[in-house]
Each structure stands twice: as C-alpha cells, then as structure tokens.
Design a protein around this nucleic acid. Sequence first.
DNA 1: AACTGGCCCAACCGCCAGATA
DNA 2: TTATCTGGCGGTTGGGCCAGT
Length: 291
Amino acid sequence: MGHRCCSKQKIKRGLWSPEEDDKLVTYITTHGHKSWSSVPKFAGLQRCGKSCRLRWTNYLRPDLKRGSFTAEEEHIIIDIHRILGNRWAQIAKHLPGRTDNEVKNFWNSCIKKKLISQGLDPQTHNLLSSRKRNNSSYPNSNSILILTSQMTPNATYLVETTSQTFSPPSIIQTPSTIVSTNQYQTSFHVNSNQLYVPEQEQARMLPENISNICSSSCLDTTDVEMSKNEEGSQAQVEEEKEKMYEKGMDFSEMNGCFEGSKFDFGLLESVLNSEFISHDIDFMDELAWNF
DNA sequence: AACTGGCCCAACCGCCAGATA
DNA sequence: TTATCTGGCGGTTGGGCCAGT
C-alpha cells in the first residue's frame, strides 16, 4: 500500500521525465512547497506528493553537489557512521550538498565493501573474526591499529589493561613513544594519529584486554568508568551513546571538538566501546586522515 | 552481435512520529 | 482523546549501464 495521498489519484511511477522535472522545478521555485501533497495537483503532475518531495530533495534541489564523493567526505561518512550507525539523514547533514540517499548508496556500493576487504565489520567497524578476515582479499596485509581516527597528535594517552597478555611495550611502535609502563598500565606519547601494530600482535589488543583508554590531555581517567567484563556493559555503552546523542551531541558540536576543543569525541567513542579498530596500512595511507 | 552477471543509483515501500482536525 | 494526514527516514528494489565471455 502506498502513501495515503497517493491513493487519491492515478499516479505515475518510475523514472521522472525531463518534462516532469521542469514542471516540478518551475512550481517549487515560484511557489515553494508548503504542502507536498498539493504540489502534484498544482504543478500538473501525475505523481504523489511523496514522490515529488523525493525527486526534489534527492535530485532537483539547486544546492545539491553532483559527482563522486571526495576522500574527505568518505572520511567523514566513516567516522560519523562509526558513532551513529545507519543514520543516513544525520550523516548527510554534515555533508553539504549530499542527500541521505546518496550517502546510503555510497556506503552500500563502495565503503561497505572497502571496509570488509580490510577485515572490518561495516556495521560495528570492529575487526571481523579471523575466519571472515581470512576470506577477505587482503589476508596478510600489514595492519595499523588505531584508537581513534581523531587521536590527537602530540598528546599522551593511557592504556589501562587488566591482562598481562596485553603488553604495550612490545606492541606499540613508532610513531608512539612509551612514557611509562607497569603491569597493567602503559602511558605513551602519540606523534601522529596512528599506532602501528604488527599483525601477529593484534590478538592481544582485542577489546577484552582493554578496560580503559584515556587521553591525559583530554579526559581524566576517573571521568570514564568502564567496567569491562561486567555483564550488561555493552548495554551501558549503548545507553550512554544514546544519552549523548539525545543531548544533541551531534557533529555540529563534534566538529567544534575536532577543531578547537580538547574534548575528543572520537576518543570517547573508543572508550565507550572499549575496542580498537584495525585498518590496513595501504588503506590508511590512501585515506590519509588529516583531522 | 548476443548474452550474462555485477554494479550503481534513482525511486519505491513501509514504518514511525509529530501535527492537525 | 482519537483518528487521520503528512513528512521524514532507512531498507529494498529494479532498470539501465558496462565489462567480460
């Protein structure tokens, strides 16, 4: 069953003809669209209002940016998707001239496959299981393990672990510098926004080994209380994320964080999820994160 | 030249929430 | 308060294009 407004009239479906586009553009530019349901009637179109709205917002709007997505746009999509998931409309709001439909299509046709080929789950952005990764087209690629794409260069971070199997001194390589370490904590200085981790060490960096990640320049470790291994901790994470989202912590604010504030939303997201993300070196080079 | 399979993307579908009668 | 209307959103579909055979 279609929309209610569609049942009232004989409507045309399928691709729009140039003539229909002309009619719609002419009508909207002169009269606006106070009510989409009345647009087809007054514009002389055999379409439902919903179809008109979709055609206008996704294709005819004059402020739309045409053409392929830039690398920067791709970075933004990946980053926001990691936080918000499939909230295409929210993601699109941060990409001027792009529609939710466009972002969704780009994700499904391009980014999704790219992430999978890098051994990442496109939904969670986590590492796929080793079996799944072995099926990827890059089975033995060198990996980079990054805490967050927004990790601040020249900042000191603390990795707190509850397992001795996680031994940062043997894992974290340049461009990071180990500042101090003990049995369960390692403080290290990051010179860029990437941490290099040998492929064979990755297993030691799985989420269960990491209880807390904080930037000493951004957050006090006591500000984030994550009790890993506690039942329901994932639910708490989701709840916390939802709270933050409801508080209006969208990217209009996040951008401010990235640009000037010390608060690192991406890092906090990593904290909330208590997990690392692995990327292929080539892939990362290609992306060239430059926040 | 004809066929086929994969991919892209515009458009549709169904659901939901807010507005209005 | 309830029913209906409307706009918005995310998931899905299918037509057209293109490369490979």
